[in-house]
Write a protein that binds this DNA or RNA. Structure first.
Lengths: 350, 350
DNA sequence: GAAAATAGCTTAAACGTTAAAGTAATTTCA
DNA sequence: TGAAATTACTTTAACGTTTAAGCTATTTTC
């Protein structure tokens, strides 16, 4: 059985003082004589005392903890986000509770309630479905949070929300432009979940770019793959088997791109000779020799860093009631041209 | 400013009852009339009440939370571990707090204290340096925890600790045997941190296998790369530039193997023709077409699943004081033969 | 119809900590 | 020298919940 925890009272008893004095001593606060102070500290050390952060949280309404909601950590994009968020948060003395939400709206809601219940001081949310109700209640409660890579359209709250996103529209637009200039006009797009603003906007950019260039794609070319590897794999396999297949695929994240790549290569399709491939995110794998996926990535400073900084600022100022404008940051993207888009094969042809 | 939270007392006031009644109603416990019960629930709903889990934790000494210590989540091996642990834990109603420890013993200690302070009910530790003091104090406090992929040698506590590990010795032994049978006797080994039991044991297996086969490796062939990509990259580059280089490299994790691969390929070395390469872990990337890293992996059921199950069992029974033998599980490994070890090139030659 | 049981609620205490206010002894300094 | 200030501590209450025990009025039992 777990041994009984040593509390401040146990120390007090041994030291012959009151719990308050122990608290003062251990927290290094004035109002106590040097001798008593040292005695208390020694006893605490001796008894191997560890403060109960739960009790402390309860009384000062702080937890020194941030919540982070993501899709799932085994996706390298999010893993990297977690890492960055944690390291920036740590510099300000915050711990991070990570929750995997798995495209499950109900799970997201439960996790948000759990985090609020655990008194996290703020949240970074990178998982939210764009019309999520629960976000609204966070806004109404004036709970500090920042959306990352997601935005909310709900007009009643949209301009009260802090977010850090990439310019998905432009990225989508330029993706198509890039492929178009490489000579493609039969371009398939594997979209992420269209419940997420990031993917909606990329898709809008894609459509606008196509429209501007007079491309009217086969509707079967725009496939919602929900950021799922399996779905992307299947979609690519179906595409390549069409009687009149596309000549390029733009996958809205690198995971899907790599899965499509597997499908194509296994089907004997050469990349980029037979099919150009363009991803999004520039996860680490994409740069490996033999993979060399052409892709698009956010420019620095990272969404992770920015969002934590905004969040902490938000928390710090959440006492004051001067209304502050929400920070809504849109990061630009940049192309990382490697081998799979075919640029190095033939360059731009138009 | 964050709005004031609705508490049980607020509900009580509105309902004209006492806090106790509210608690009874919301927790669905007997001792209340149906009408009052319904009224209270309605009001709670109305006020958008969310229980304060901190207060609840304080009183029932439970947090419904497990701690998980890993090196860092952006390493796919650990990301996968996190994912598995979380999903198994969730099935039993536990949340998971993940802490990245980054090879930093002090950080590990602080994280452990934080987790204990936050009253996690148990921990899964996959980060610990084999001689870590802090583990000892967990043992002394009879705090429930399970080591994953790590074991502790300290004889005073070694047989009181629960762990789930892979048979590193055998894996290391067989790695060398495999390469040897493929014709190699100049084999370099990129080890993980030798502060971790997992790597120590792999290395012992390696040495034994070499010894048994009369191989006395150039000491410059055994390189501690600390599971670092950069170090593995540099090590591989140095190896290939030697006047009498090895003909095979065994990297003790796939990350290092892939980094070594980069170095070799960039240096014009063909894999496996000029240099065979064998990894460990079988992370997802390793199977991608064009990578096809030969590697070694744990057999199912996964360490993650087993460890959570053991931990939860431990927690459940931590009230009873019948002493239970610690569970110490050693998983076998299996080879995943792909292209980089050269098996498919020439098969075993001895 | 009196004793016993029950239903429906309340009171009080507890979890481990911190904050605010209070008290007694000591020091300061005009 | 004596009022004011300071020091070194203690007392009390609070954070939001749960729980054991208590109370009262009603119902059941035989």
């Amino acid at each position: 059985m777990t041994k009984k925890k040593v509390t401040i009272k146990d120390i007090a008893k041994v030291a012959g003082v009151t719990a308050t004095s122990v608290s003062l001593a251990l927290n290094n606060r004035p109002g106590l004589g040097l001798k008593t102070r040292q005695k208390i500290i020694a006893i605490a050390e001796e008894l191997n005392y560890r403060p109960d952060l739960v009790a402390r949280s309860l009384i000062n309404r702080k937890s020194q903890t941030l919540g982070l909601l993501i899709k799932n950590v085994s996706d390298p994009f999010f893993a990297h986000l977690v890492d960055d968020v944690e390291s920036v948060a740590k510099d300000s003395g915050y711990n991070v509770m990570v929750c995997n939400v798995h495209n499950n709206r109900d799970l997201e809601k439960r996790h948000i309630e759990m985090l609020v219940g655990k008194r996290v001081e703020g949240m970074i949310i990178s998982s939210v479905n764009f019309d999520a109700r629960h976000i609204r209640s966070l806004v109404e409660d004036e709970f500090p949070f920042v959306l990352v890579n997601r935005r909310v359209y709900d007009p009643e709250i949209a301009n009260r929300i802090n977010h850090v996103i990439v310019d998905g529209f432009e990225a989508g637009y330029q993706a198509i432009e890039h492929l178009y200039r490489l000579g493609h006009d039969r371009i398939a797009v594997l979209t992420g979940t269209l419940k997420s603003s990031a993917n909606i906007e990329k898709t809008n950019g894609v459509k606008k770019a196509m429209h501007d260039r007079g491309i009217f794609p086969d509707p079967r070319f725009i496939i919602e793959c929900n950021n799922s590897k399996r779905e992307a794999y299947n979609a690519a396999r179906n595409l390549m088997r069409m009687e009149n297949p596309p000549t390029a695929i733009f996958a809205q994240d690198d995971n899907m791109a790599l899965s499509a790549r597997e499908a194509l290569l296994q089907g004997g399709i050469r990349i980029p000779e037979d099919m150009a491939l363009l991803g999004f995110d520039d996860i680490e794998v994409s740069s490996l020799t033999g993979i060399e996926l052409s892709t698009i990535r956010e420019k620095k400073p990272s969404m992770a860093r920015l969002s934590v900084e905004i969040l902490i600022d938000l928390i710090k100022n959440s006492g004051s009631n001067k209304p502050r404008l929400p920070k809504q940051i849109v990061l630009k993207t940049e192309h990382v041209i490697r081998k799979t888009c075919g640029f190095y094969l033939k360059g731009y042809v138009r």
